[in-house]
Design a protein around this nucleic acid. Structure first.
Lengths: 214, 214
DNA sequence: TAAAGATTGTTAAAATAAAAGCAGGAGGCT
DNA sequence: AGCCTCCTGCTTTTATTTTAACAATCTTTA
């Protein structure tokens, strides 16, 4: 059953997309689908979708397809979306506040418990039930509250130091928005959102298109 | 020379990272580097780095390595960072405003010219020299101003429609923050920043680690 | 000036990921 | 009921990506 440790990252990155499209099907009242149909929606090949899902078990039925709700629940279980997660955000600047205000992931059970900053003007403010606290209180806070995921939205100059502090306090999952690669021990998982790199890639393809059309 | 069209997306996604680390070297006054050293910094293998760079030409010197500034400039040219780009942001909510305020990409020549929203409370406000305009004026605006990149920060329910409008007005590069895949013609490039998917992946790995350590 | 050491550019091999193909079983139709 | 069609799960093949290997050649040093 647990061959999970061998699953390729590419597969894991596709699962949320399947999950999202299955949610859309549910909303429109469709309760049956197929790898073919999912292929049309997601753009991945039907073969790849079947193979991805089969890494975790046979969720479909030959000759019939997949039960939408069942498959969605299975993927939720695989990703762990059937649990609740407590988040804190370090750095209550633009990005940090935007994440705290972001309603997109409130569909799943993610709760932003608190934000931390060192700017006195921000400390004490609250965003959607989460208070901005002094970053000096971070360690004490983490001693008392069990936090699952820390979101790093600090300037890059302090991101490494902040991350190390988080890890020392027992944090093992970091969602990193600082444009810097965090050097972390193996038992900590870092998911990067490097906006720069994303924009630079886009810039490349934009220019490629312009070259081609000339 | 122009085998560019064959370059794998994986290579393109690594270039911004090289660019960033080369920038850090420049700041610390180091003017010579090697694939070995870049490997230590980036975590990519030295062999891969050499191969990536050689897709675009031989920027190094045998027995010596790479000139930091020269290599950085070459990568800038490849990505197109030696040009200026004008951006508009559609949707001046949390994410839209955060992007407008984001100073990270002002290092390169990206200028947010305007934001668009339909919320009357937001229209007229300005963020770092960029005014929030009525989204109804979008088409007229695009007739007069030459915009390179449009950033879609709207709710997902209207993102497709907005994107189509943008494309009709000549936009060919979209940076999409809406949690939805935009169906676009081939001559439009969409770069997605799907925060949900990123967080869900992180959640998976977080749970994997917890399973393993038990 | 010649030899040693270093590091690229490039080719070959290995590993990984994606696509194609197909047997088997399920549902639907007549 | 029995045949036909469909679609999964799995195996095999193909394509892509990464790693390894090495000849060429540049710099440095004695």
């Amino acid at each position: 059953m647990d061959k999970h440790d061998k699953i390729s990252p590419a597969v894991i990155r596709r699962l949320p997309k399947y999950y999202r499209y299955l949610g859309e099907l549910t909303k429109t009242g469709i309760n049956k689908t197929s790898s073919r149909e999912l292929s049309d929606m997601t753009g991945f090949s039907a073969s790849q979708i079947r193979q991805d899902l089969n890494n975790f078990g046979g969720f479909g039925q030959q000759g019939f397809g997949y039960d939408v709700e069942n498959l969605r629940n299975e993927i939720a279980k695989i990703l762990g979306l059937d649990n609740k997660y407590k988040l804190i955000i370090i750095g209550a600047g633009n990005i940090g506040q935007a994440i705290a205000n972001y309603t997109g992931f409130y569909e799943a059970d993610y709760e932003v418990v608190a934000l931390f900053d060192k700017n006195p003007k921000l400390i004490g403010m609250s965003i959607r039930n989460a208070i901005i606290k002094d970053v000096d209180d971070l360690e004490n806070f983490l001693k008392e509250d069990k936090i699952d995921i820390a979101v790093v939205c600090t300037p890059k100059s302090v991101s490494q130091q902040v991350a190390e502090q988080l890890v020392q306090c027992g944090i093992r999952a970091i969602w990193n928005f600082a444009p810097k690669d965090l050097k972390m021990p193996d038992n900590v998982h870092v998911e990067n959102v490097h906006l720069n790199e994303s924009l630079f890639s886009l810039t490349y393809y934009y220019n490629q298109m312009n070259k081609e059309s000339k």
